[in-house]
Amino acid sequence: MTHPGHEIVRKFFTALEAGHLPEALLTDDFSAWTTTQGELTHEQYASAIPLLAKLTNGTIHFTVDAISAEDDRVVAEVRGKAKLIDGTDYANTYVFVFRMRDNCIRSVAEHFNVQLVMEKLVPLIAKLQSP
């Protein structure tokens, strides 16, 4: 039997591809952690999603290679690909670790290749934020 977290996590990635955080899938006390930013509040994490959409002309395509679930933990191995606004390709691999409560995502931790983010995304973020 499939763990209920499998479908919730797939819906999460579908929403991220559309450029928004799926609020209906999150608990009120949702929190996040990323390799480059550490601990993030709900608001901080949510603000990064539209920024990512701006960097990728609207979308990053996520391919879920595997999902494993046990108790309140769901782990997804994912590949992300996009064409960046400067015309270059972006491709990174991720491991997302979700914690669930009441069929909602309580927290997410994103593990990814920091070097690719620093080389490809950070310079574009700086350009978007410069006056």
Rank of each mutant, 00 (worst) to 15 (best):
Ile60Trp: 00
Ala53Phe: 00
Val78Cys: 05
Asp71Gly: 06
Gly58Met: 01
Phe62Ile: 03
Val78Glu: 02
Val64Pro: 03
Thr63Asn: 14
Asp65Thr: 06
Glu77Gly: 06
Thr59Tyr: 00
Gly58Ile: 00
Ala76Ser: 14
Glu77Met: 06
Ala66Cys: 12
Arg73Leu: 11
Ser68Asn: 15
Asp72Met: 04
Thr56Asn: 03
Asp71Thr: 08
Arg79Lys: 14
Val75Asp: 06
Ile67Gly: 04
Ala66Val: 11
Asp72Lys: 10
Glu77Asn: 12
Ala76Gln: 10
Leu55Met: 06
Val78Phe: 00
Arg79Trp: 10
His61Asp: 09
Ser68Cys: 15
Val78Asn: 05
Thr63His: 12
Ala82Gln: 05
Glu70Leu: 09
Thr56His: 05
Asp72Ala: 03
Val75Tyr: 01
Leu55Cys: 09
Arg79His: 13
Thr63Ala: 14
Leu55Ile: 10
Ala76Glu: 12
Val74Tyr: 04
His61Pro: 05
Ala82Ile: 01
Ala66Gly: 09
Lys81Ala: 08
Ala66Met: 14
Lys83Ile: 07
Asp71Cys: 08
Ala66Gln: 15
Gly58Leu: 02
Thr56Phe: 09
Ser68Asp: 15
Lys54Met: 04
Ile60Ser: 06
Asn57Gln: 13
Thr59Asp: 02
Arg79Thr: 13
Arg79Pro: 03
Ser68Met: 15
Val74Pro: 10
Ala69Lys: 04
Ile60Met: 09
Gly58Tyr: 04
Ala82Asn: 05
Asn57Ala: 12
Thr56Glu: 08
Val78Gly: 11
Gly80Met: 03
Gly58Phe: 01
Arg73His: 03
His61Arg: 11
Val78Ala: 08
Val64Gly: 09
Glu70Lys: 10
Lys54Val: 02
Ala76Lys: 06
Ile67Ala: 06
His61Gly: 11
Ala76Tyr: 01
His61Asn: 13
Val75Cys: 12
Val64His: 10
Thr59Ile: 07
Val74Asp: 05
Phe62His: 10
Glu70His: 13
Gly80Ile: 00
Asp65His: 15
Gly58Cys: 09
Asp71Leu: 12
Ala82Asp: 09
Arg73Asn: 01
Glu70Cys: 09
Ser68Gln: 15
Ile67Pro: 02
Ala53Gly: 04
Val64Ile: 15
Glu77Cys: 08
Ala76Phe: 01
Arg73Cys: 05
Leu55Trp: 02
Ile60Leu: 06
Val78Ser: 08
Asn57Asp: 14
Ala53Val: 00
Lys81Thr: 11
Thr63Trp: 01
Gly58Gln: 03
Leu55Asn: 07
Arg79Ser: 12
Leu55Thr: 12
Leu55Lys: 03
Gly58Lys: 01
Ala69Glu: 09
Ala53Gln: 01
Asp71Ile: 04
Gly58Pro: 14
Ala82Glu: 07
Ala76Trp: 00
Asn57Ser: 13
Lys54Trp: 00
Val75Gly: 11
Val75Glu: 05
Arg73Ser: 01
Ser68Pro: 13
Asp72Cys: 02
Ser68Ala: 15
Thr59Arg: 04
His61Thr: 11
Gly58Val: 00
Phe62Ser: 13
Gly80Val: 00
Val74Gln: 05
Ala82Pro: 08
Lys83Phe: 13
Val64Met: 13
Ile60Asp: 02
Ala69Met: 08
His61Gln: 11
Ser68Phe: 15
Thr59Asn: 06
Asp72Trp: 10
Ile67Asn: 06
Glu77Val: 03
Asn57Gly: 14
Asp71Ser: 12
Ala69Gln: 07
Val78Asp: 05
Val74Ile: 06
Ile60Pro: 03
Ser68Ile: 15
Asn57Arg: 11
